[in-house]
């Protein structure tokens, strides 16, 4: 423990706050409000998803046969595990275990990469069969609205993928700061905030997976 704390950096409370606690709770509140915004952002897409599920239930049944539930399930496992390692990362930061923090953050990042690799193979398969958004759609299908499903699929999983990418960037930034010894039991705000964000990204996938892969 003691040797881990040697080269720590003392955090200074920003000038417009009175106490470190005020700074922390403010950041946390801001992050939660931001996540509410994210929820609405994806929410509109889920509404569109359900509108078309209501309009063309047959089309959804046909379409989900073109998605591999096994790959989806694998990705679900990756993300749920990554949420766990993220929690442990935050916990380690709070308890001054800097090496553990680094390890857990690294594990989270690796799991995110795994998720993207699986996603790559899935996308490649869709490209190969021409199951693409309407302008590029050339897949074989029965239902005339099938391209809409893939339009929604690519928009929703694509936006989620972008969020995963942003998450990887944020975790890398955390690791950089952690390596400089900026986080400790007195100051771990960024770790906690990125953790919240990461759980949100995970949560979105928890909804995307059954809706797209398991609808039939």
């Amino acid at each position: 423990m003691s040797n881990q704390l040697e080269n720590t950096v003392q955090h200074h409370v920003a000038h417009h706050f009175d106490t470190a606690e005020q700074e922390f709770t403010t950041a946390k509140l801001g992050m939660w409000i931001f996540l509410v915004q994210e929820l609405l952002f994806f929410g509109a897409l889920f509404v569109a998803f359900f509108v078309f599920k209501y309009l063309y239930p047959q089309m959804y049944i046909e379409a989900h046969h073109h998605l591999s539930w096994k790959m989806g399930a694998l990705n679900t496992v990756f993300l749920i595990t990554s949420s766990f390692t993220m929690v442990m990362g935050v916990r380690s930061a709070q308890t001054n275990q800097r090496r553990a923090t680094m390890n857990y953050l690294f594990a989270t990042m690796m799991l995110a990469f795994c998720f993207l690799v699986v996603k790559y193979f899935e996308y490649a398969e869709k490209f190969h069969h021409g199951f693409l958004p309407p302008h590029f759609f050339s897949g074989e299908g029965v239902h005339q609205s099938l391209p809409i499903f893939f339009g929604l699929y690519f928009v929703m999983t694509g936006l989620h993928g972008i969020h995963v990418l942003i998450g990887i960037g944020l975790i890398a930034w955390l690791m950089y700061r952690s390596s400089k010894g900026e986080f400790n039991s007195e100051f771990y705000t960024p770790v906690e905030m990125v953790g919240l964000y990461w759980h949100f990204v995970d949560l979105v996938w928890i909804f995307l997976f059954p809706l797209f892969y398991l609808v039939g």
Partner: peptide
């Protein structure tokens, strides 16, 4: 955020098609 996603869908509709606003596809 709902406006943001709506406008994004409009942009994507023009570039690659999403179909949900396109009556020819059943949108």
């Amino acid at each position: 955020p709902v406006l943001a996603i709506t406008l994004l869908l409009l942009i994507l509709e023009r570039t690659m098609g999403v179909g949900i606003f396109d009556s020819k596809l059943g949108g």
